[in-house]
Design a protein around this nucleic acid. Structure first.
Length: 578
DNA sequence: GCCGTTTTCGGCCCGACTGTTTTCAGTCG
């Protein structure tokens, strides 16, 4: 039973528990505590089941004895008694109703009790009959929102999309606004600024002394499908593809305060403000106020906000309340890796396998980016579809690469391979063949359904091979399509350290694998990383920036990343160079 | 229910906008 309990599944139950408690009218802070714990459990890179069995759950922030006991109960019995009891006492349909945008627990509860309803269908019928608007405090708009929300729950629950896809749109909006005379400054905020792996909306902040024409220009933009709300300082629109766009405007003198506020994360801001309150300060998007004197410090620049709170400026990628506030206070923030420090790419594909570009075109593109080396890694045969290189073709490719490399001046062209890790952990090329390659990336492309023990064993066996330098996209996830396969990440990190194997941080926007929390686990263990694009085209070489941002979210410094070094030094960090 | 740069008890971030109302609760981020 416990084998099927994922972190996400456990978090889901506490999420529901929080919703039901809120409906019941529980103390708000108790509800908040369950929500916080659910989020922590969901984002924990290690197995919550295992942490529970080791008695280590309360080490997680937001998880105390009560919640740890409930997790243990869930693992042991398959359910949480307190949750079952609340579920039984709540009419089915209240939870879906409270999750309709614009409807919260209070409204949902009122609808059910005032009209004596007992199901989603009842609510829909009541809305159609115009009975919702008869409930005191509710009106036509609410009735309409319920009707639409319940009939199209999927459309409302638009999935978060990869930030890589959303970012260009956000940049376009910023560029558009920056051209207006009334706009003094403009930036992306929110999760896109923090480079979270996915985002559900676009947040933009604007510095202006004249917000009205700016709001006018926004709602008149060609991308706007619906204007959801429009106030004096805030406009919310929905684009034609369903993307929600929030624009907030403030006077330039407090632009830094607003940018800090809207960059979040929510957890970061809450922690910042709680700390500020303890120091007698009040933080909002309009300034930092000394409560006792009423003096307000207004910050045009974001760094000033942090300085007034006694902290170093915190890079947006770290603002998740995962220790960055304490580090900023003691001047111990990491010196995060930067895009400009990347000297080469260890994972790329040409038209020898499934890449779009020829070898020559890809090399030219890498040189144009200012890199000093590129490792070409076409597929091995096991990947299927006949596109992988068999031993004969790989030998011919090695020759071709060596010939081309000899003609290049000031650029090191390396020949490698992305060799498949087979089901039993053995590799798709012989040791003799791999010995002829410069840098070998080993990846897993099939048999995703093995259980965690088998998958971990398989990956560890591959790392034992003396020719395997890098493990490509180590957890195999595809954002929005496929979860990471079950894996004991701690064991993988440990084996990487022991064998000197480098773990990849893929910049592919739909992979970002390792994910941030796993990057951090590797960094803390002292495992080296390679930030690669896994480019299958010239354009995809640009994915490096997403890889770098993701590594930054995992607290990686240039020192942690092998390809911030020139080739001779990078080589010494790989197995064959040792 | 959780937690500690004042705390093992007493607090727990802050403001904008909407809808339904005449002063604000509810919802959202």
């Amino acid at each position: 039973m416990s084998a099927t309990l994922t972190n996400d599944g456990i978090a889901e139950r506490f999420e529901l528990l929080a919703d039901l408690l809120e409906l019941e009218g529980a103390v708000a802070y108790r509800v908040l505590a369950y929500r916080r714990a659910a989020k922590t459990l969901r984002e924990t890179p290690e197995s919550v089941v295992r942490l529970s069995q080791q008695g280590r759950l309360t080490e997680l922030s937001g998880v105390g004895d009560t919640i740890a006991d409930k997790v243990a109960e869930l693992i042991a019995t398959g359910h949480i008694a307190a949750l079952e009891k609340l579920v039984a006492a709540t009419p089915p349909g209240v939870v879906p109703l409270m999750r309709v945008p614009g409807v919260g627990p209070k409204t949902a509860k009122r609808v059910f009790t005032e009209l004596s309803l007992s199901s989603v269908d009842d609510v829909l019928q009541a809305a159609r009959d115009g009975r919702i608007r008869e409930v005191p405090g509710l009106g036509e708009k609410t009735e309409q929102a319920i009707l639409e929300g319940l009939q199209a729950p999927r459309a409302q629950k638009r999935d978060r999309v990869s930030s890589g896809k959303l970012r260009p749109f956000a940049e376009r909006i910023v560029a558009q606004l920056a051209m207006l005379d009334e706009v003094e400054d403009c930036d992306i905020a929110g999760s896109l600024r923090r480079f979270t792996e996915t985002a559900k909306d676009v947040d933009v902040v604007v510095a202006t002394t004249d917000p009205s024409p700016v709001a006018e220009a926004i709602v008149a933009s060609d991308w706007v499908a619906v204007v959801e709300s429009r106030g004096d300082t805030k406009v919310t629109c929905v684009a034609h593809d369903g993307t929600r766009v929030d624009v907030r405007m403030v006077e330039p003198a407090v632009f830094g305060n607003l940018l800090q506020h809207l960059t979040g994360s929510k957890e970061h801001n809450v922690a910042i403000r709680e700390a500020a309150v303890r120091a007698g300060l009040k933080v909002s998007e309009y300034g930092v106020e000394t409560v006792e004197t009423g003096e307000v410090i207004r910050c045009r620049d974001e760094a000033q906000v942090y300085r007034h709170l006694g902290m170093d400026w915190i890079p947006p990628e770290l603002r998740e309340n995962r220790g960055e506030i304490e580090a900023a206070r003691s001047h111990a923030l990491p010196d995060l890796v930067e895009l400009g420090q990347i000297r080469g790419d260890f994972h790329s594909h040409t038209d020898w396998s499934d890449g779009k570009q020829t070898l020559e075109q890809l090399v030219e593109a890498a040189m144009a980016k200012g890199y000093s080396y590129l490792n070409v890694t076409d597929h091995s045969p096991a990947v299927g579809f006949g596109m992988g290189l068999d031993a004969g073709r790989l030998r011919r490719q090695i020759e071709r690469v060596r010939e081309l490399a000899a003609r290049l001046d000031g650029f090191t062209l390396l020949v490698g391979a992305e060799v498949d890790i087979l089901k039993d952990g053995s590799l798709d090329y012989s040791d003799e063949l791999m010995a002829e390659l410069d840098v070998v990336v080993a990846s897993l492309h099939a048999s995703h359904r093995l259980d965690a023990d088998a998958q971990t064993k398989r990956l560890c066996a591959a790392m034992e091979n003396p020719h395997v330098d890098i493990i490509g996209h180590p957890t195999g996830r595809m954002l929005g399509r496929r979860d990471a396969y079950p894996l004991h990440m701690e064991a993988v990190v440990e084996k990487a350290l022991e064998t000197g194997t480098v773990l990849e941080v893929s910049g592919q926007p739909n992979r970002l694998d390792l994910r941030d929390a796993n990057v951090r686990m590797a960094v803390e263990a002292g495992v080296k990383l390679a930030i690669d694009t896994d480019a299958h085209s010239r354009a995809a070489l640009e994915y490096m920036r997403f890889g770098v941002m993701n590594a930054r979210r995992g607290w990686a410094t240039a020192d942690d990343v092998v390809n911030t070094r020139e080739w001779p030094e990078a080589r010494r960090l790989l197995k064959d160079g040792r």
